[in-house]
Design a protein around this nucleic acid. Structure first.
Length: 291
DNA sequence: CCGCGGGCCTGAGAGC
DNA sequence: TGCTCTCAGGCCCGCG
């Protein structure tokens, strides 16, 4: 499901339900997702009060009142939904409409508010962990994660510095989590189109020889920020699995200009959107106006 | 170090 | 209808 806008949408939904609440208990319906749950996972969460919720890259961070952080990753198909028992029994509710999917409800957090926060993940590429708050940045999960694309660190200059000298295609470099955290296949394609840059161009070609920013780097930085902000405002993109925590769909997928639009007209120049494969992933772009 | 391909899972959709 | 094949928003690992 998730790239940065979808994860951010989920974070906001979880924050509304969890912040200030206490975790009464946690039911694990499997011993693993992508990885085994850490030892005593449920017991370590029971009784904890939830503080702030943050996002780093595509991870959701849940602050606990014992100096630890619950780390959540949605993988490709993870989602959370929040419900109380009344909702669960209401015909027409998300729970009812997708009853067959409850086979993939793997974790249930019961909160002091009476609500339940349920993690569903058919493909089980997601995972959860508990780390010490003080050691978060040093944790293997976060050591070496790149800059936040919505923070102040992303601009033409930083983009040029990160990409200078790289021979990898621009598309591949943009999706490299060690450089920029949180961009995935959809928004990389969309940002490149908005910036009018070819995904096949060498990443280093948006930097000057001395590593300074070119006009292309400035354009790309603006495009990344713009597409992410618009997508978050739209509640993310709903392709297969993504829903907001209240069960509602995001609708940014209707705003895609190239992603999954092979053979259709480029909304900017009328050229035909092409599909190629780079580093094993589909790339969509307009060969006419992306240079 | 760098870039690429394969693998992890299940389900949806296309094509026959 | 049902089978088979391909592909999917992420990420890790190993290879050359």
């Amino acid at each position: 499901m998730p790239e940065l806008p979808e994860v951010e949408t989920v974070r906001r939904g979880l924050e509304a339900a969890m912040r200030g609440a206490r975790i009464v208990n946690v039911e694990l319906r499997r011993r693993d997702l992508r990885f085994p749950f850490p030892k005593n996972f449920a017991a370590r969460l029971a009784g904890r009060k939830v503080g702030n919720l943050w996002r780093r890259a595509k991870y959701i961070l849940v602050e606990l009142d014992d100096g630890h952080i619950l780390v959540l990753h949605l993988g490709m198909s993870g989602s959370f939904r929040i419900e109380d028992k009344k909702q669960a029994r209401t015909p027409g509710s998300f729970y009812h409409a997708h009853a067959k999917d409850i086979a993939h409800d793997h974790v249930v957090f019961r909160l002091s508010t009476g609500q339940r926060v349920i993690y569903n993940d058919p493909r089980r590429f997601g995972f959860m962990n508990i780390v010490e708050t003080d050691k978060l940045d040093a944790d293997p999960l976060f050591r070496g994660v790149g800059i936040e694309p919505l923070g102040n660190e992303l601009n033409g200059a930083s983009l040029a510095r990160l990409f200078a000298g790289k021979t990898a295609p621009l598309k591949t470099a943009l999706g490299d989590q060690r450089l920029i955290a949180g961009l995935g296949n959809i928004y990389v394609n969309e940002a490149l189109h908005r910036a009018g840059l070819s995904p096949r161009r060498a990443a280093g070609s948006i930097a000057r020889k001395d590593g300074a920013a070119t006009e292309r780097a400035e354009r790309l930085a603006r495009a990344i920020r713009e597409v992410l902000e618009e997508a978050i405002a739209a509640g993310g993109s709903s392709l297969r699995d993504h829903r907001q925590t209240n069960g509602e769909l995001g609708y940014f997928q209707h705003k895609f200009r190239v992603y999954d639009r092979e053979g259709q007209a480029c909304p900017r120049c009328g050229g035909i959107v092409r599909r190629i494969v780079q580093a094993g992933r589909a790339t969509f772009f307009c060969g006419k106006c992306q240079k």
